[in-house]
Design a protein around this nucleic acid. Structure first.
Length: 388
RNA sequence: GGGUCGGUGGCAGAGCGGUCAAAUGCAUGAGACUGUAAAUCUCACGCCUCACGGCUACGUAGGUUCGAAUCCUACCCGGCCCA
C-alpha cells in the first residue's frame, strides 16, 4: 500500500510511505541492487548497519541460480538472504534487453515469451509473463514487476512501438496471473508495470494509458533515455511522470546518478534502484559529499535559508586506484557512520584494490551506499521542509 | 679449467636476416560503468612531438650483409654437466 504524506508546492516531489509485509518504507527511496540475492561484496548485516531499508533482487537470475526449489525450501528470498526488510523483485525485463536485444545469440523474443540461453551454462530457458509473476510470488518479494520488453535506445520507431505493444500485452497477462497467485498465496505484493516508449513522449503516453487501463499499484519508467552523448534526457522522464496518477508509486528503474535522482524526485518519481553505487564502488570509485555542498540536511541552520534549486556539484568522486592516493593517509570517509570507513586510510584502501582484496570492494560499496542513503535522507528532509 | 645452454622493454617470456620500437601475460598510468553476463571493459605504456616524423634500443665490443634482436668473432655475466 502506498500513501502520500506530503506534496511539494515547489515541484512535483512528494513524500510517501509504502507499506509492505516486511515493514514500511519512506519515499522517495533508493534500493541497492542485489540481483543474484546479494548486494555484491556486502552482507545483509553490513546493509542493516548503514541503514539500507530495501533492496532489489532479480527474478531471472535467482530462477537460474540457485533455482526456485531451493529458495522455496528455505522459505523464500527473505530468509534465504537473511533479510527481513522489504524486497522488490525485478521481472527479468531488463535481461530481455541486456541478454537478447544486445546479443541475439543469447535468446529470442516472441510475442508469447522470451527464450533465454543462460549465460551461466548456455542452457535454454523460457520466460513468460505468467512465469515471471509465479517466480516472484515464490520468491516472496514485497513489490513485484511485470515482465516488459526493454529495447535499446537506438531501435527504429516501428520496433519501439512493437516493444510498447508487447509490454502492454505482457502486463495484461501479468496482472491476470497476479490475481491467480494472489488467491493461491493469500499475499498482495505491490504490482508495478513498466512504461516503455523510448524518447517518444507520444509513445510513452500510449503505453502509460494502456497500462493504467489495466491498473497497477505503481508504474515504472523503463529504458532510461539518453541523448547522442549518452546523457540523461529529463523531459521524457518529467513528461512520463505526469501521465501517472498521483496515488500510484512512480518507479525510476535503473536511475541512477545522484543528480539524476534529485531531478527525478522533483518530477514526482518516488523510488529508484541502480547498480552505480555498488558497481562503481567495486571498480574503485567513491562518492563523497563536497565539504561545502549547499545540498545539506536541512536542519543545519546555516543553509536552511537556502532557496532550493536542483543542486549541482554537491559531491565528488574519486578513483581510489589513482596513484595520488598511494600516500594519502586520510580516512576513507571522515564523516561516515561506519567506524571502518573512518579508521582505514585511503592509502590502505588503494592497497586493498591493488592487491585485489575483496575487503576493498566491500568498503567502497558501503561508502557509496551510505552516500546514496544520505542523499535520499537529504531529499526527504528537503521535501518535508518545503524546500524542494 | 673443459663442455653446454642461455643473456630481449619494470618483470616473465615470444621472436631467430627485412613486414620489429619488438607478440603475449603481469605490473604500471588513466578512463568508462545507470531495472548487474561486470572483482568487468577500454586506452596508454623506450625517448622527443598534438601529429607527420625523428632518435636511441634486444649483455658489451667488433664484424658479415643493401639490411642484424636474429649470422660470425672476442669478451663479460648466469644456469646445468664433467673435472
Amino acid at each position: 500500500m502506498f500513501r502520500i504524506i506530503k506534496k511539494s508546492k515547489k515541484s512535483k516531489a512528494r513524500l510517501g510511505v509504502i507499506k509492505t509485509a516486511h515493514g514500511e518504507i519512506q519515499t522517495p527511496f533508493f534500493m541497492p541492487d542485489a540481483t543474484r540475492g546479494v548486494v555484491k561484496a556486502v552482507s545483509s548485516q553490513d546493509l542493516r548497519q548503514i541503514g539500507v531499508a530495501e533492496a532489489v533482487i532479480n527474478t531471472y537470475h535467482l530462477y537460474l541460480q540457485p533455482g526456485l526449489k531451493l529458495i522455496t525450501k528455505t522459505g523464500g528470498a527473505h530468509s534465504f538472504m537473511n533479510w527481513n526488510k522489504p524486497l522488490l523483485s525485478d521481472s527479468g525485463g531488463y535481461q530481455v534487453y541486456s541478454l537478447i536485444h544486445k546479443n541475439h545469440r543469447l535468446g529470442k523474443i516472441t510475442d508469447d515469451k522470451v527464450i533465454f540461453h543462460s549465460p551461466l551454462d548456455g542452457a535454454k530457458h523460457e520466460l513468460t509473463p505468467e512465469r515471471s509473476i509465479q517466480i516472484q510470488f515464490a520468491l516472496g518479494t514485497d513489490m513485484i514487476v511485470c515482465l516488459d520488453d526493454c529495447p535499446p535506445h537506438d531501435v527504429s520507431s516501428a520496433a519501439m512501438a512493437k516493444s510498447v505493444e508487447r509490454t502492454v500485452l505482457w502486463a495484461k497477462r501479468c496482472k491476470l496471473e497476479y490475481e491467480k497467485q494472489n488467491k493461491k498465496y493469500k499475499r498482495r505484493p505491490l504490482l508495478f508495470a513498466v512504461i516503455q516508449g523510448g524518447t517518444d513522449l507520444a509513445l510513452r503516453k500510449i503505453c502509460a494509458d494502456a497500462l493504467m487501463d489495466i491498473g497497477f499499484d505503481g508504474y515504472g519508467f523503463g529504458a532510461r533515455p539518453v541523448d547522442g552523448e549518452g546523457k540523461f534526457i529529463g523531459e521524457i522522464l518529467a513528461g512520463t511522470a505526469e501521465m501517472i496518477p498521483g496515488n500510484a508509486v512512480r518507479f525510476g528503474l535503473g536511475i541512477g546518478l545522484p543528480e539524476d535522482i534529485v531531478r527525478c524526485v522533483t518530477m514526482g518519481w518516488d523510488i529508484f534502484d541502480c547498480v552505480i553505487p555498488t558497481r562503481e564502488g567495486r571498480h574503485g570509485r567513491l562518492f563523497l559529499w563536497k565539504r561545502n555542498s549547499k545540498f545539506q540536511i536541512t536542519n543545519n541552520k546555516q543553509i536552511s535559508n537556502h532557496k532550493f534549486q536542483i543542486p549541482k556539484n554537491f559531491y565528488d568522486t574519486i578513483n581510489i586506484n589513482n596513484a595520488k592516493f598511494a600516500k594519502d593517509f586520510k580516512p576513507i570517509n571522515a564523516v561516515s557512520k561506519l567506524p571502518e570507513l573512518r579508521e582505514y586510510s585511503r592509502a590502505y584502501l588503494r592497497h586493498l584494490f591493488k592487491i585485489g582484496e575483496p575487503l576493498g570492494q566491500r568498503l567502497a560499496s558501503l561508502n557509496n551506499l551510505e552516500f546514496y542513503l544520505n542523499l535520499m535522507e537529504k531529499i526527504r528532509q528537503n521535501i518535508k521542509l518545503g524546500k524542494i
